[in-house]
Simulated scan of single mutants.
Amino acid sequence: MDMAGGVEKLEGPEYEQVWDRFEQRFEFRPGMECPTWPAIKEPADSITWSLDALDDDPGYVKLDAMIDLLNGALWACTPPERTLLILDWHHDCYRIRPHAITAEHAPRWPASMMPDGDYNIHLAEDFRYGTFGHPWEHTICVMGAPLLQRVTEDLDSILLQRVREGGGPSDRRNIRTER
């Protein structure tokens, strides 16, 4: 595996294999016409936040804080010899070695986890932790105990509203009013 700069584009059979594994593991049901959301079977150790708090975000301060927080936590969860998958539905997908990506490789990672019209997924190769951005529901699901331990408190402060926990409705729907 040649990962010049820590980034390798997934192509051909490998691209298909990764998507097949993802679709099977998470029971992925893509499409805007999906009658039920979420579009994946969210794991028991997951929290899904609404991204609506980012709609009124002059200068993208909250968005940048969310992305920096999640990139940093994914970096911390991933051992130096391991890789992450970055899947962007119907677009280029990558395998990255976060510890090999340096400031000279701008942007730091080849894609943001912000769902910008398509599903955007950042996952450990073994799918134990990661994020799933849903463009039409306007949410981000953070999965896996190691990742949740690093980001939950800060994401509650940035995004303000949990939608689901463990795939079911959250009892902490509006964090803004709880404080």
Score class of each variant (00 low, 15 high):
residue 42 E to W: 03
residue 43 P to N: 00
residue 43 P to K: 07
residue 44 A to D: 15
residue 44 A to L: 14
residue 44 A to C: 13
residue 44 A to Q: 15
residue 45 D to I: 04
residue 45 D to M: 04
residue 45 D to K: 04
residue 45 D to N: 08
residue 46 S to W: 08
residue 46 S to E: 12
residue 46 S to I: 11
residue 46 S to A: 06
residue 46 S to L: 12
residue 47 I to D: 06
residue 47 I to L: 10
residue 48 T to L: 01
residue 48 T to G: 07
residue 48 T to K: 03
residue 49 W to M: 04
residue 49 W to H: 05
residue 50 S to F: 08
residue 51 L to F: 02
residue 52 D to P: 11
residue 52 D to R: 14
residue 52 D to L: 13
residue 54 L to Q: 05
residue 54 L to D: 12
residue 55 D to W: 15
residue 55 D to M: 15
residue 56 D to K: 14
residue 56 D to A: 14
residue 56 D to N: 14
residue 56 D to V: 13
residue 57 D to C: 02
residue 57 D to Y: 09
residue 57 D to P: 04
residue 57 D to V: 10
residue 58 P to D: 09
residue 58 P to K: 05
residue 59 G to E: 00
residue 59 G to F: 05
residue 60 Y to T: 13
residue 61 V to P: 10
residue 61 V to E: 14
residue 61 V to A: 12
residue 62 K to V: 05
residue 62 K to L: 04
residue 64 D to G: 13
residue 64 D to Q: 14
residue 65 A to Y: 07
residue 66 M to P: 08
residue 66 M to A: 12
residue 67 I to Y: 12
residue 67 I to K: 12
residue 67 I to N: 13
residue 68 D to C: 15
residue 68 D to E: 15
residue 68 D to S: 15
residue 69 L to S: 06
residue 69 L to C: 08
residue 70 L to R: 02
residue 70 L to Y: 00
residue 70 L to E: 06
residue 71 N to A: 08
residue 71 N to K: 10
residue 71 N to I: 02
residue 72 G to P: 12
residue 73 A to S: 08
residue 73 A to G: 01
residue 74 L to W: 03
residue 75 W to V: 09
residue 75 W to P: 09
residue 75 W to I: 12
residue 77 C to W: 02
residue 77 C to V: 00
residue 77 C to S: 00
residue 78 T to D: 00
residue 78 T to E: 03
residue 78 T to M: 04
residue 78 T to A: 01
residue 78 T to W: 01
residue 79 P to A: 05
residue 79 P to R: 03
residue 79 P to F: 06
residue 79 P to D: 01
residue 80 P to A: 04
residue 80 P to E: 00
residue 80 P to V: 01
residue 81 E to G: 10
residue 81 E to D: 14
residue 81 E to V: 14
residue 81 E to P: 11
residue 81 E to L: 12
residue 82 R to A: 14
residue 82 R to K: 15
residue 82 R to S: 15
residue 82 R to M: 13
residue 83 T to M: 10
residue 83 T to S: 09
residue 84 L to M: 04
residue 84 L to E: 07
residue 84 L to F: 06
residue 84 L to R: 04
residue 85 L to F: 06
residue 86 I to K: 05
residue 86 I to L: 10
residue 86 I to Q: 00
residue 87 L to Q: 01
residue 87 L to G: 01
residue 89 W to E: 13
residue 90 H to S: 11
residue 90 H to V: 10
residue 91 H to D: 12
residue 91 H to L: 12
residue 91 H to V: 08
residue 92 D to I: 11
residue 93 C to I: 02
residue 94 Y to V: 11
residue 94 Y to M: 03
residue 94 Y to N: 09
residue 95 R to A: 04
residue 95 R to L: 03
residue 95 R to F: 06
residue 96 I to V: 07
residue 96 I to Q: 00
residue 96 I to S: 06
residue 96 I to F: 08
residue 97 R to G: 08
residue 98 P to A: 03
residue 98 P to F: 02
residue 98 P to T: 00
residue 99 H to E: 00
residue 100 A to K: 12
residue 102 T to D: 05
residue 104 E to H: 10
residue 104 E to G: 07
residue 105 H to G: 14
residue 105 H to W: 13
residue 106 A to I: 11
residue 106 A to E: 11
residue 107 P to F: 01
residue 107 P to R: 04
residue 107 P to D: 07
residue 108 R to E: 09
residue 109 W to Q: 03
residue 109 W to K: 06
residue 110 P to D: 00
residue 110 P to C: 00
residue 110 P to F: 02
